[in-house]
Design a binder for these strands. Structure first.
Lengths: 150, 150
DNA sequence: AAAGTTTATAATGAATATATAATGAAAATA
DNA sequence: TATTTTCATTATATATTCATTATAAACTTT
């Protein structure tokens, strides 16, 4: 229905792949680096593969590789792929979700709120996430090298 | 964790009360009119009462009444009262929600998205919802009286 | 052929959401 | 005072979803 861990894992996996372009990484290794349950990740990767974003090669030396440039994938797209159509309330879901068949007075408010949410996610590309991941790491490494006084 | 039916029921109940100012309506009657599970509503009303928005009077002729003007209650407040602090992802929840202790690159994106969502809900008062409820009803009634040709 | 790996599906346990039921307490009326 | 009506509170049951593990199958390389 909305943003579950599964989506976070998917994004984390894509980020890891984005950090190492054109490299095949086994799902087990991705799971280790990104702290994702190793048995859970394969299903997620399969979904990403069905969308054409990643390619998996089986067998020894195989692994997963990013096919699509990170700037062409938005967080919104990932979430919607993993969760299915996002709906912050039952009211916005298919069929009998809305008690009054789309005429309930809350309908438009939920829709507006959801659109605001999705807009933020849609304006954020995987590239942005990869970059801020890098920034965080640089910062952490600098801190290690030159710790500030406390 | 986020917007469940419970919140919708709460808002619906408040709307019903807002439609009939200064009138005591039994929870059973509210449930009937707004299509809310009748046994579920009392718990919800109790929560609304603890916040001081409604008053319940027991005994024959008793019922529930709105104490606070609808323009002074926002949808956001209702949702947060019913659901507790809203968090669209585990990452934004208390304590160990974020896998990387608040430093994960997704953190700020979730936060932005959530803030966008909450802003819409915070900008909508119960008055707005009551009004659009009225508008919908007027429209439906006009349609009944003077049906358009099809 | 053997080992490692992805892909796909199924099964399970845990948590949460939803709802019902039971009980208790207060107020009004007869 | 007894009875009815109603809110308030708590306990219980059910259903759904989430998260994970487990299993099986297909594929690739060595």
């Amino acid at each position: 229905m909305e943003v579950t861990k599964k989506s976070e894992y998917a994004i984390s996996a894509l980020v890891e792949l984005g950090l190492h372009p054109d490299e095949y990484i086994s799902s087990k290794e991705i799971a280790r680096r990104q702290n994702i349950p190793p048995n859970f990740l394969p299903q997620i990767i399969a979904t990403l593969g069905s969308r054409g974003w990643v390619e998996g090669v089986r067998g020894p030396g195989g692994g997963v590789k990013l096919l699509t440039p990170p700037e062409r994938i938005t967080v919104r797209e990932v979430v919607e792929l993993i969760e299915g159509p996002v709906a912050i309330t039952r009211c916005l879901m298919r069929e009998g979700g809305c008690s009054q068949l789309g005429r309930c007075p809350l309908h438009s408010i939920w829709a507006q709120a959801q659109e605001a949410l999705l807009k933020v996610l849609g304006d954020t590309t995987l590239r942005n996430v990869v970059d801020s991941h890098n920034a965080l790491h640089r910062q952490a490494n600098a801190e290690l090298a030159y710790p500030r006084a406390r």
